[in-house]
Design a protein around this nucleic acid. Structure first.
Lengths: 228, 228
DNA sequence: CGAGTAATTGATACTCCTCAAAATGGGTGG
DNA sequence: CCACCCATTTTGAGGAGTATCAATTACTCG
């Protein structure tokens, strides 16, 4: 436990997990609801590190988590963002393939991988649910690859905004849990280009940025039209 | 069957599937060995198209297959290359997420998805094997995303060459089954940049290009050093 | 051997990264 | 409550690298 840098926060009131749970396989959600232990993790703390043995699996209940890998030249590639309802560390092999860090203070449910594995071996529905989570991770990764394959900073940023808006479902306006640097490392750009692109989108009247973390899509249909 | 453009080639002698089968879950291989029907597909023919219902799953026995998606502006993104021993179409939902095309004449084993699903429902080992195939697809997709995230044409091309050499295991020299255009669409570059980069790598003494399709890695350790 | 495709190579323009600096915002201490 | 500091974000100018346009060369197949 100590090796995972889980903040030993007091067990305050845990927010119920409403958002996005309908997306996930229900019997896996039930398993987490019953058997997982809940932790509160401070912003910036790591859930696990790349190449560590993957003993634990997580579900985000509140806040946001990101996974990333480091290159030898110091560059960082953010692989995925996780929002409430998402499972983290589920598609790892014997070792985690990336490092997971809390972008904001986050509430997560934790289970031992072996426990989940044991339950799945006697429950075909749970086994199937684990498969579906992997399939979902695959599709996310393919979409990410499609974003990274796009030429042009505007297309990449817009692709992210549209995807993120769809995930949060908080109307057209939403709050970004990540810094510009996180965004840049996710999109394969620099923070300068991300910042410039967002300013450019605002000047074009396509988005509104109330603050650097709060974005509103003013013309969602135009934005989506720029993509597929 | 007709809708899949499977070439109605005569059932000539089918090459045994030696290469890379050790990588794959054995009980899934056994299932294909027993229950699949074998087809020979001409180069350029499609196995399936994006958004079609995913009735069939494939295993490549000989030749090479690529999957791709099209953007509205006509650009094409190659999602993955498949070599002998690889399964194609396995991670699809109710519809295929991409179009699959034979890059060369290919020999493929075909099964109905429903048949595989039925067998898996009564065989936990097979069910687990399907999961492992999805996990493998996920890891492939993540590696692809990492390649696309790399700045610099040289890094992308080298990353592809190193990865492909590891997959073929044909010593340091191997034949590329895809065109420069396929490669460019996989790497998010133009054919001009890919061609220039390969010429540049050859001029640097890092690779040898006996023909445009045959590549030999002269300094594999240097090439790998350029990446991670 | 000839036609059509694929691949290579050159010149130019444009985009994004790099280096640099200013501005904004949040938090702490006086 | 205000002033200060630090981190984050924004903006600017210049340069490196790739896309684009164009043309030539190499290759494959009939």
């Amino acid at each position: 436990m100590a090796t995972y840098n889980l903040a030993t926060a007091p067990r305050t009131v845990i927010e119920p997990l409403r958002a996005r749970s309908a997306d996930q396989p229900c019997c896996l959600c039930d398993t987490f609801d019953e058997d997982a232990t809940t932790h509160i993790i401070a912003a910036g703390r790591e859930l696990f590190r790349q190449s560590e043995p993957s003993y634990k699996v997580f579900r985000v209940r509140a806040g946001a988590v990101a996974t990333y890998r480091l290159f030898s030249d110091g560059r960082r590639q953010v692989m995925s963002f996780y929002l409430p309802g998402d499972f983290v560390g589920m598609e790892a092999g014997v070792e985690y393939g990336a490092t997971a860090v809390a972008l904001t203070q986050a509430t997560v449910d934790v289970m031992r991988r072996s426990e989940l594995s044991d339950l799945a071996s006697s429950d075909p529905r749970l086994s199937r649910a684990l498969w579906q989570v992997s399939l979902r991770a695959f599709h996310r990764s393919e979409e990410h690859a499609l974003v990274l394959a796009r030429h042009g900073a505007v297309e990449r940023v817009v692709a992210f905004l549209v995807d993120f808006a769809a995930r949060t479902r908080a109307g057209s306006a939403f709050e970004l849990p990540m810094t510009r640097q996180d965004l840049a490392d996710y999109l394969g750009l620099t923070i300068h280009t991300v910042s410039r692109t967002l300013s450019q989108l605002e000047a074009s009247g396509l988005i509104e940025a109330r603050s650097s973390r709060v974005v509103r899509l003013l013309q969602p249909e135009s934005l989506e039209g720029m993509l597929q």
